Amino acid sequence: MDKSKVFWEDLGVTAEISAFTPQDKIEEFHVMLHVKPRAELFDGQLKRIYEGEERLLRLPQVMGADVILKRYFLSDSTNQQPLMKQEADCSVSVIQQPPLDGSKVAVWLYLQKGCKVANVNGVIVAEHNGYRHLWKMGMHEHKGDSAWQTESLLISYEETLQSFNATLADNCIRTWFFVRDVDTQYAGMVKARKENFAEQGLTERTHYISSTGIGGLPADTRALVQMGTYALTGFEPSQQRYLYAPTHLNPTYEYGVTFERGTVMEYGDRAQVFISGTASINNKGEVVHVGNIVKQTERMWENVGVLLEEGGASFDDVMQIIVYLRDVCDYPTVNEMFARRFPDTPKVITLAPVCRPTWLIEMECIAVKKRCNEKYRDF
């Protein structure tokens, strides 16, 4: 894996790039674009970010890759999203989770080189070697409470999967739930998700889906929940396994929620490891180091490290990190800690309350590890 940074001084834009580029195989890239704040309005920063995206695609190592998804982190989604361009060639989500570097916008991009990519009825499909990777971001509703909206979103998504001969239980690998006013609305989302999963055959006796449930404001002020998803078809059930880290973490159902701590997808040439939103928690489901941002960050890293190890990977294989903070005043401390430990890994630190008030910080990440496994087809 190669990790690099590019700074375009005239734009004031930095691209943090992770590249997994095996010879004559599908290449993957995760990129975080950051814009240096200047004395300008949002549209000025957005224009520079867009120009940064264009320059990124002209870099020799990235040239020829297709953008699969973009997630824009905004400081004021309701007022800023109307200024953004409409895009149909990749899956886009826009969420109010302000970047804490002082800018109004940052973006995470995921790219692949060598796949056939198409928009099929609003789903971005990356197809190669018998696999179909299905990405659908930015789903939201504008009626009802958080439980009703969650149920509606899941039913709609399940209908979408049916058009690909797929199901939520068998094919969905990763979900994201962004919840407005997470301290009051999260419970409704959790209840509806649990009930829907049970109807789909997802229980504590079977499995759940890796996920992040976090505070975030959709642009539509009526939307209480926004959902993003990744699903896959064409794989053998044995290619997918779940991560538990029982020495450090407990099963999520023990405290009433329904997601997996992490998921590994094994291919012939690589493994992808999806780590769910992870915080400072022990294997009894208790928050550890209440009120101490440094200790919570260190315990969070410990938990993620154990999950990665169980998945046959390490922090060296992590291609991107998203960090969520409850208190903006913790940013200088956390930013210094992450910069020191992960100086080259693409990352963004945002303001986004975690689902328990005493959790000060949460992170998620995606890792890719080289494999030589003749049992499975290459990615």
Rank of each mutant, 00 (worst) to 15 (best):
L57R: 04
L56Q: 05
I49W: 06
D24A: 05
I17V: 12
S93D: 14
V35E: 06
D24V: 00
E28P: 00
E51P: 06
G114L: 05
F20G: 00
L111A: 02
K25Y: 05
W8A: 09
M32C: 04
T21H: 13
I95P: 01
L33Y: 04
M63W: 12
E53R: 15
L56C: 06
A65W: 01
G52P: 12
L74T: 03
I26N: 01
Y72W: 10
G64E: 10
K85N: 14
L111V: 01
N119M: 06
L69C: 09
P37A: 11
H34E: 07
V94T: 11
V107N: 05
K104I: 08
L33I: 04
I68V: 10
R58G: 02
H34G: 05
S103Q: 02
D101A: 02
G12L: 09
I95A: 06
I17L: 09
N79M: 15
L111Q: 03
A88M: 13
S77K: 11
L111K: 00
R71A: 03
L109Q: 11
I49Q: 11
Q23A: 14
V35P: 01
S75I: 06
S103M: 04
F73R: 06
G44A: 06
C90G: 03
F42W: 09
I26R: 02
Q112W: 00
P22A: 04
N79S: 15
A65V: 00
V94Y: 13
L56D: 00
G44Y: 04
K5M: 05
L46Y: 15
Q61G: 01
L111R: 05
F20C: 00
D43G: 04
